[in-house]
Simulated scan of single mutants.
Amino acid sequence: MSEELRTLSALELKKAFERRELSPVEVAADLLDHVQHHDHALNAWCLIDRETTLEIAKASEQRYLKGEAQGLLDGIPVAVKDVFLTPMWPTLKGSRTIDGASTLNKRSPATAALERHGYVPLGKTTTPEFGWKGVTDSPLCGPTNNPWDPSKTAGGSSGGSAAAVSACMAPLALGTDAGGSIRIPAGFCGIVGHKPTFGEVPHWPASPFGSLAHAGPMTRTVADAALMMQVLSETDPRDSQAAPQRGTDYLGALEGDLSGLRIAYSNNLGYVDVDPDIERACAAAVEVFRD
């Protein structure tokens, strides 16, 4: 598959599957080859299980052949940060202290929602131990490097997911964010990272970071982030703090009228010492929104 096809968005892949121009197996196999050939420079992935991924992709391919596509993401490859429970793979959170067998046969709300919509899990992406810092390295997996310059960090704690998406190893990825763990690596790696309002995306088990910790999408396009939010925001009874589902049409909202929208901005929150270069960059961004 050409490099151009690896840069297709999830929405574009879905259309290609529906038209039978591409197959989920073809796409998954090519992305796995891409990971195999290039991840040695990045260390974005901590678990790849080609056989299981292709088995799930084959089931998706059969659904398309029967005209029975499942949900919004059928056949779409997704990178899963290794803090989300996946029934077929252990969840180790970058730590040597977790018994991987104890995490099997369980699903986080996010992976359960993705599964309902037919996703193809490509593997688990790296995280610092327990996702606790703004760079991605751990005693279990080592450091994750930035696709733009492997001598630099990918950021963290969702650095593996950010690097994988940025390097066109996956169109979509799951991340979590308490103090910037989606936003920092998204910024460092040049992708879209969204920290949703707390409770908008159900999360279980509860994070030790409490209400600071949110699950969210990491993608290469805003439309793909909206598509993921359409799926991830589905209700899950295991999260007692989740907001009632509002039926938001995230994709439709991208086409909405922005007139009358107001955005609050503070350059220092009244007390923070901000580097002048950062303050100028943020002020320029504020002007874009104002315009």
Results as ranks from 00 to 15, higher is better:
S9G: 07
L11F: 05
L11E: 11
K15E: 12
E21C: 11
L22W: 06
S23W: 07
S23M: 10
P24K: 08
V27K: 00
A29W: 06
L31N: 01
L31Y: 00
L32I: 10
H40Y: 00
C46Q: 03
L47C: 09
R50G: 05
T52D: 04
T52W: 11
E55S: 11
I56F: 02
A57M: 07
K58Q: 12
K58S: 12
R63G: 03
K66G: 01
K66R: 09
G67M: 08
Q70I: 07
G71T: 01
I76P: 02
I76F: 03
P77D: 04
P77E: 01
V78D: 04
D82Q: 05
D82A: 08
F84K: 10
T86L: 02
P87V: 04
L92M: 05
K93G: 11
K93M: 12
S95V: 09
T97Y: 12
G100I: 04
T103H: 02
K106V: 05
R107C: 13
S108V: 03
T111F: 11
A112F: 09
E115R: 13
E115C: 11
Y119L: 11
V120G: 01
K124E: 05
T127A: 02
E129R: 11
F130Q: 03
G131N: 09
W132E: 14
K133S: 10
V135D: 15
V135I: 14
V135Q: 15
V135L: 13
T136W: 08
D137R: 12
D137C: 11
P139S: 13
L140F: 09
L140N: 10
N145T: 00
W148D: 13
P150F: 13
S151T: 14
T153N: 06
T153M: 05
G160I: 03
V165E: 02
M169H: 01
P171M: 06
P171Y: 02
P171C: 06
A173G: 00
G175N: 04
R183N: 10
I184A: 13
P185D: 09
A186D: 04
F188C: 12
F188N: 15
G190V: 02
I191H: 05
V192S: 12
V192F: 08
G193K: 07
H194L: 15
H194N: 15
P196W: 03
T197R: 10
F198A: 15
G199H: 09
G199D: 03
G199F: 02
E200H: 15
P202Q: 08
P202W: 06
P202E: 01
W204C: 12
P208A: 10
F209N: 14
A213Y: 04
A213G: 09
M218L: 07
T219M: 00
T219L: 06
T221W: 01
V222R: 03
V222F: 04
D224A: 03
D224M: 03
A225K: 13
A225M: 10
A226Q: 00
L227P: 01
V231C: 07
L232E: 04
L232F: 04
E234D: 12
T235S: 15
P237G: 08
A243M: 14
P244L: 07
T248W: 12
T248E: 14
D249I: 02
Y250H: 07
L261D: 00
R262H: 12
I263L: 11
N267A: 15
N268G: 10
L269Q: 08
L269D: 15
Y271T: 13
D275R: 14
P276K: 09
A283S: 14
A284H: 14
V286R: 13
R290Y: 01
